[in-house]
Design a protein around this nucleic acid. Structure first.
Length: 488
RNA sequence: GGUGGGGUGGCCGAGUGGCGAGGCAGCGGCCUGCAAAGCCGUAUACGCGGGUUCGAUUCCCGUCCCCACCUCCA
């Protein structure tokens, strides 16, 4: 069975056949680095991380590119605001910060969030500001082809001519005539209100450092242009997959497609869009106050549980967060880890190449992670059953499959800052706990259950969980609350 | 107004024209000195009204509601 993916442009599930056998070129939209990452950003990143992992598991060499939009209106606005006399700095926005410093700072914040969740970095992460000449070339091509024009006023703007491109709207199946005009649209020098900026002329009051000399005057690039220019540079005029959040379909991806296609490029062959994250069914919004940030999630649950939560729904589905979500994810992850730890007592469990057929079929079916997780959990059960029956060989075999599946879903690569952060402390703790467990074993042997239970209660009280087995007691640090990983 | 996606048991969340995925929570049982972990069992679920069909949650029609996008947005 081969991979099938839902393609937004054709609105169908299609067999995935890469341009070049064995190689996949993937471009997906990263963030505009104007603020701290929110849950939606990391959900998208996890979704595409799972795609890349599954492609690689399937034997493809994946060339992935994710852009960093480090120049745009919001970045400039926020920087400008930080210089205002009445500006009140907070922990996210200090006073007097240049736009490029602000952008770079948040770019790093995104990296921290991605890293914390085990999202692997793409092969390249190009920044918009580093690709001016590539953008000039694309604008030139569009003007020469009659699909773009510099305004006749003195603004220095260059626009894409929507009316010159009959296919405009093909990605989202909209007709230009049906589109609602933006209420606050400033027609400026546009021929049509839907025309969008390829190049924005420099305006008085904007920092000189935020503009570049171009054949059409000093200015800065429009948002959509960078993706067309950079994807072409790193992946070629035609590439396999273009991804991003559902909210980017229009206008961002529609405009990218129009630009690149009008310039004569094949552009993306498959369009993938991940669903939004909601809070108890409602769109997260700062004004409503129903938001939760990746940091807050990481403070209340282990990173691996956060990752599990973010990846557990099918990527196109809306992912609903509610206060109990992370505890549920934590429980599910615990179940998997407990089994792997059991089998790990027999021999080391490392991910291999083989996954159960049902898992592969689910992943090939447009990355049906929920169905894949069902197979994973079934395999855990089968392994536990074998373990309880004393069949260690089968248990270990199942554990290998579980580890492989978990690895494909990115659950084994999530850093666990707690443990690694303090090996010495952990060793000391282990020594103390094991001493107490020996005492407890002696008490149990003497049928002094009061004393045995007192020792267990004492350990439980400080977050050390005890599990008895025929081979003796096993201990682990209680999860869920995860005092260890709590961020300070 | 236009475009697209949804409404599944206490919660999350797949899926299918007919043998009720999976996780979490609950209940009963096995195991255990007691727990924990594990295993087994346990639910008159598919927004509403019609229709097609031997049979629909799954197809068709209507209807209600929700969400996203059409302005910066993962």
């Amino acid at each position: 069975m081969a991979l099938r993916l839902y393609d937004t442009k054709t609105a169908t599930v299609r067999d995935f056949e890469p341009l070049q056998p064995g190689r996949v070129s993937l471009y997906y939209c990263g963030a505009t680095v104007q603020g701290r990452p929110h849950v939606g950003h990391v959900r998208s990143a996890v979704a595409f991380d799972i795609l890349v992992r599954w492609l690689e598991h399937s034997g493809y060499d994946v060339l992935s590119v994710r852009n960093v939009t480090d120049i745009d209106d919001k970045i400039l606005e926020k920087s400008a605001a930080s210089y205002a006399a009445d500006f009140v700095p907070d922990e996210d926005y200090p006073a007097g910060e240049p736009w490029f410093a602000l952008a770079y700072r948040f770019e790093q914040a995104f990296h921290e969030a991605y890293d914390a969740l085990g999202v692997r970095r793409p092969r390249y992460e190009p920044r918009a500001t580093g690709h001016m000449t590539e953008m000039f070339t694309l604008i030139r091509r569009l003007i020469d082809a009659g699909h773009a024009y510099p305004t006749t006023d003195d603004s220095g703007d260059v626009y894409f001519d929507v009316r010159s491109w009959p296919a405009y709207g093909e990605l989202t199946r909209q007709r230009v005539e049906d589109m609602q005009d933006a209420p606050d649209a400033d027609p400026r020098g546009k021929r049509d209100p839907r025309d969008f900026a390829l190049w924005k002329g420099h305006k008085d009051g904007e920092p000189e450092s935020a503009s570049w000399d171009s054949p059409w005057g000093r200015g800065r690039p429009g948002w959509h242009l960078e993706c067309s220019a950079m994807s072409t540079k790193y992946l070629g005029p035609t590439f396999d997959i273009h991804g991003g959040g559902l909210d980017l379909r229009f206008p961002h991806h529609e405009n990218e497609l129009a630009q690149s296609a009008a310039a004569g490029d094949g552009f993306a062959r498959y369009w993938l869009h991940n669903g939004m994250v909601t809070y108890e069914g409602e769109k997260m919004s700062k004004s409503v106050g129903n938001t939760i940030s990746p940091e807050e999630m990481l403070a209340s649950a282990r990173p691996v549980a956060v990752r599990y939560f973010l990846g557990q729904a099918q990527y196109r589905s809306q992912l609903d967060y509610r206060p109990s979500s992370l505890a549920e994810a934590e429980a599910a992850v615990d179940r998997i880890e407990t089994f792997l730890a059991r089998a790990g007592e027999v021999e080391e469990i490392a991910p291999g190449d083989a996954v159960p057929e049902g898992f592969a079929a689910a992943m090939d079916d447009d990355l049906n992670v929920p169905a894949a997780l069902a197979v994973l959990h079934d395999t855990v059960r089968a392994g536990n059953t074998a373990w309880d029956a004393g069949d260690r060989g089968t248990a270990v075999a199942r554990a290998r499959e579980v580890a492989t599946m978990a690895s494909v879903l990115g659950l084994l690569d999530v850093p666990s800052p707690s443990r690694a952060a303090d090996d010495a402390g952990h060793a000391a703790l282990a020594s103390l706990v094991e001493g107490l467990l020996e005492e407890r074993a002696e008490a149990k042997a003497a049928k002094d259950y009061a004393r045995a239970d007192a020792i267990r209660d004492r350990l439980t009280a400080v977050g050390v969980q005890i599990e008895d087995s025929r081979d003796g007691a096993r201990w682990s640090l209680a999860r869920g609350t995860d005092k260890e990983a709590a961020h300070g």
